[in-house]
Simulated scan of single mutants.
Amino acid sequence: MTVMMYWYPKCGSCQKAKKWFEAHNVALEAVHIVENPPSKELLKDFYEKSGLELKKFFNTSGIKYRELGIKDKVKTATEDELLELLASDGMLIKRPIITDGKRITVGFNEEQFEKAWL
């Protein structure tokens, strides 16, 4: 499967990730996370395959995260409610999310990228 990158073009971490993939000659298919946010089902698949806590999928530095008081909601909401919330707005999702259908990385971490994508 193609390596897919769910990103927001103005995001610094997303730009760094894109440059990293270009420098390592890894072809990417980029998906604008705000214009085409991943569905609840797709987010659930990412979450299950990533091995990360669901709260790691939230863009905790985002304005909407703070405006909606999600920090408190994460503590008591069900997995289904959190996935619904994430799927409702691409700006709530930590980015970039990169996947080839088997592996998933969330955010940009060069060391993590070297292990996962080279």
Rank of each mutant, 00 (worst) to 15 (best):
M1L: 09
A17W: 07
F113S: 00
Q15I: 06
M1H: 13
I33Q: 03
G107I: 07
A17P: 10
L28M: 13
G69N: 07
W117G: 10
D100V: 05
L85G: 02
G69C: 08
K55P: 14
A30K: 15
S39T: 11
M4R: 14
R66H: 04
L86F: 09
D45K: 15
L118C: 10
S13L: 12
C11H: 04
E114S: 06
T60G: 04
E53I: 10
R103I: 07
D45F: 14
P37I: 14
K18S: 11
V26G: 02
T99F: 11
E48H: 12
K115Q: 10
F108G: 11
F21D: 00
L92Y: 04
V106T: 07
L42D: 14
G51Y: 05
E84C: 05
E35A: 15
A116D: 10
Q112E: 13
S13K: 15
L92W: 03
L118D: 10
E53R: 12
D89Y: 06
R66I: 00
V31C: 13
L83F: 11
L82T: 15
W20R: 03
Y65R: 03
A77V: 07
L52M: 11
G51F: 03
K64A: 06
P9W: 10
I93F: 02
L86G: 09
Y47V: 09
N25C: 03
K19L: 04
